[in-house]
Design a protein around this nucleic acid. Structure first.
Lengths: 340, 340
DNA sequence: CTGAAAGCGCTTACAG
DNA sequence: CTGAAAGCGCTTACAG
């Protein structure tokens, strides 16, 4: 009795499980059980505990919980950027899903630097996250580290030859090839590519050029490199560059819909008609692609399927299942709209 | 010796501080010291530890570390959405800053629901985050909870009457008022507002209307509500709506630059000239505002200053300083560009 | 259905 | 500069 008062008096201390237990007149083990799985506790006991939690204003310490149970209920999500990112859709879905199921997400911004990606992976492993979902390039030296940790590792948006863990994505080589065929079939002859210099973009670009040469029709593609293909602002520079060419390209292939949107704006401001004077293609089928005027012809990737597959893996892994090192090809499809 | 071999044999166990200590021939306390503050350990010892860390592939357990030190080195960031959010800029800066200084961010997506915000705040408190940075509305009942936890709580982009912790933002009432004056001074007479129905947007809207009536010139403002003011896609609906009015509005005030961009696209697709036939104003001075054609007249909020102020508070709080419950007014300014 | 107790892997006064 | 030891606040077999 005395002890209870003493504890109550210490109003400045953050209440612990023991405080709740004391108040409810049960052991802390029972409180823990109730909090994690109410059904396994007698109803009357549960009621008392619920009340005690309220009364003392208990907020569980997830660090202690995670340490004891060795599950953090936290998932790391690693993306290059936040602004105009083609991944935002996937991230948003996953974050909502995870939150709904009691997990939280640790956000990592990798930029285009593998070093930063590695640091973030290490940080995520240190926090003992249940899974790491990565959209960037992973340094060779991390592979061991990740494997030994037995953390679920999911690479998204690409299908590497030797995935570190799981990979859910599509073939960027195939995308580049199909893009070339599509452009040719539409009768365009002078393509201009605006892409990033990084892994996936380069794959698409190389394979586009290869296929274009194989088709053997029209000019060699021109192109320009940008650091981040989703920055609307790059459009001015790219447009100025292609404008200088003679003859001018008849179609621009952009690394993202956001860039495509920028090119369309620039083209129209310059008095050109899209697609008649200049056709424009995007990538990613982001929400704006269908809303822009003209609507943007682009490559659709099934974000909601990706998010679903990722979540299914996270859930299975959480349930103790062993996840194989494997790849899921979700494919892609070119969506012909007005801009090309 | 025997023990050491035994431990080494258990290759499937995740290595702990003790494994490193044993390998380096020091106590785990020393390893811990070295990892957290290399300078306080003798150089030779440090070298041996560094090597041992490498050899066993040690990755510290941040859950245990956080529990023992009662600092999680984690900051929660709560925003409504990821897509086309005016906060992305701030978030990006802060995330990079935090990562650079060894913290990580927990991302929470609140939508427009106070209930979800509350859940996320509770989750953040459970993880014993060092700070919570929130851009959304907070339920009354959370205030106590937050205060007692002594977690640094920062509300961003607004200046509530009674901030829960710190607030860094600007007066949305003043913004609405100044917007009205600006629009009037430019000679527009028939404004149309496209805003969200939520807290801040409503404040601006109400104060715009109030001031507009006070000025006593022109028509009563028309308007339309949207759920998320940054969705490019809302532009079609809003534009269709204002198109039906007779006489048509001469200026549209949008809740975000992204929406403004959408309205401009719609207007031009309909053959209207912006700003001659219809002027358009954005909000937030996001990166696209200056890149769009026509460039978008908008309200600039100093994101980098906000990010800096937030980071300074987080740092001071981390250093043990007591942060007062206070407000920092970073102001705003209307940037006149081509669209209005 | 519930309790006593060991243990999760660190950090940090305290002592030397 | 370093070590022994207590403690952070939970979870979870093990018993009953």
């Amino acid at each position: 009795m005395k002890d209870e008062l003493d504890r109550t008096a210490q109003a400045d201390r953050v209440p612990t499980l023991d405080d709740v237990a004391q108040r409810a007149g049960v052991s802390s083990a029972t409180v823990s059980r109730f909090l994690n799985n109410p059904k396994i506790v007698a109803e009357a006991t549960g009621e008392r505990i619920r009340e005690a939690v309220q009364r003392v204003g208990y907020i569980p310490n997830a660090l202690a919980g995670g340490l004891a149970s060795s599950k953090s209920r936290m998932v790391a999500v690693l993306i290059p950027h936040l602004t105009d990112s083609l991944f935002n859709d996937i991230i948003e879905r996953m974050t909502e899903d995870l939150t709904a199921s009691g997990s939280n997400v640790m956000l990592g911004l990798t930029g285009t630097s593998p070093a930063r990606t590695n640091d973030l992976i290490r940080a995520a492993l240190a926090r003992r996250v249940d899974a790491i979902i990565s959209t960037g390039p992973i340094g060779e030296d991390m592979t061991d580290c990740i494997r030994r940790s037995r953390t679920l590792f999911i690479q998204v948006w690409e299908l590497p030859e030797n995935p570190v863990g799981m990979a859910i994505g599509f073939s960027h080589r195939d995308a580049g090839r199909d893009l070339a065929r599509f452009v040719a079939s539409r009768g365009y002859r002078r393509p201009f590519l605006v892409t990033a210099d990084g892994g996936r973009a380069r794959l698409r670009r190389d394979s586009f050029i290869e296929e274009w040469q194989a088709i053997g029709t029209g000019e060699e593609p021109h192109g320009t490199l940008v650091d981040i293909p989703s920055r609307f602002g790059h459009a001015r520079r790219a447009f100025a560059e292609l404008r200088r060419l003679d003859p001018m390209p008849d179609v621009v292939l952009c690394g993202s819909d956001y860039l495509a949107q920028g090119i369309i704006v620039e083209a129209e401001a310059a008095g050109l008609n899209v697609p008649d004077d200049l056709a424009v293609m995007g990538f990613g089928n982001s929400p704006i692609a269908g809303e822009m005027r003209p609507t943007i012809t682009t490559v659709d990737v099934d974000s909601s399927r990706i998010a679903r597959e990722v979540m299914a893996l996270v859930r299975r892994h959480g349930a103790g299942e062993d996840i194989p090192h494997n790849s899921i090809d979700v494919g892609f499809r070119i969506i012909a709209r007005e801009s090309a």
